[in-house]
Design a protein around this nucleic acid. Structure first.
Lengths: 143, 143
DNA sequence: AATAAAATTATAACGATAACAATATTAAAA
DNA sequence: TTTTAATATTGTTATCGTTATAATTTTATT
């Protein structure tokens, strides 16, 4: 079951996290744009609505949302940190040609290794890299 | 079968990449220290042997080795890029307490998702986060 | 309405990486 | 072997994402 914006609001209230106008907008943005945006993209897009917006606020808000467990950090490339509203476990595929990040379903929970028997696992991440179908077909057109 | 330093040398020769003294030292370092070092760690350690060493050289060398397919970039945290000599497919576990990165064996090749049927997959990565046994036991000692 | 607490903003600082030009080293040609 | 060209290394500077800090504004509390 997909959590709605309302669910997220309730969860923040439960955790005693104030929902300021800016924070609300960031949360709205993340639920409506599940494209794993960077800080810069979020900032640029929201600035159109909130001209006084500061980038620091985006960083602060995201940190708070991550700590509250509503948002997840996606680290695929070292120079671009992306953010994902947490929906369900899934993997990420990054196209090396166009840069788009795709979600894909995969059963992460069942992933285990005997080597980690005595480890406490808090977080599992999977990401693939390659070429997406759109870029594959555009390469074929050129030939 | 584990590739040796000699194997790597041959591979570089085949790819027409000159093996300068600095590059050799980096390669040696990576084969002897499979602890997923950062650029800074490599630089600091090698500087003891090569006082004139420049950090730029480390960056250049690593880029070349990555392009040649001998070294793999490990991106777990966005603020620390790590490097791994490529041995075989395995996952990485980062301890959130002490920061150590552990390898663990896992069958990455068999990981697939129907969602990616039309995608060309070049690279698969798995990393977990949590607490390692050593840190777990030291926490217990305190209690 | 007054006060305290928290959030936002603007600015400056920081650190990792990349760009650049100058120097040193290696490889190739004479 | 000497000369020349190509490549690698070095040191410096620039860039960019992120964080720290202080001032201002907004929100909550009395």
């Amino acid at each position: 079951m997909k959590p709605s914006l309302e669910d997220f609001k309730k969860e923040l209230k439960m955790k005693n996290i104030q929902l300021s106008y800016q924070r609300l907008k960031v949360l709205e943005y993340l639920t409506q744009n599940q494209c794993h945006p960077t800080v810069d993209k979020i900032f640029t897009d929201l600035q159109k609505d909130i001209p006084t917006l500061s980038k620091t606020t985006i960083y602060n808000t995201l940190r708070i949302l991550v700590e509250a467990g509503l948002v997840r950090v996606i680290t695929i490339e070292d120079n671009e940190t992306r953010y994902d509203i947490i929906v369900e476990n899934h993997g990420h595929f990054k196209c090396e040609s166009c840069g788009t990040i795709y979600d894909f379903s995969i059963d992460i929970d069942s992933l285990t290794s005997e080597d980690l028997n005595n480890f406490k696992i808090n977080d599992k991440n999977i990401y693939f890299k390659g070429i997406c179908p759109r870029c594959l077909s555009s390469i074929n057109e050129i030939r």
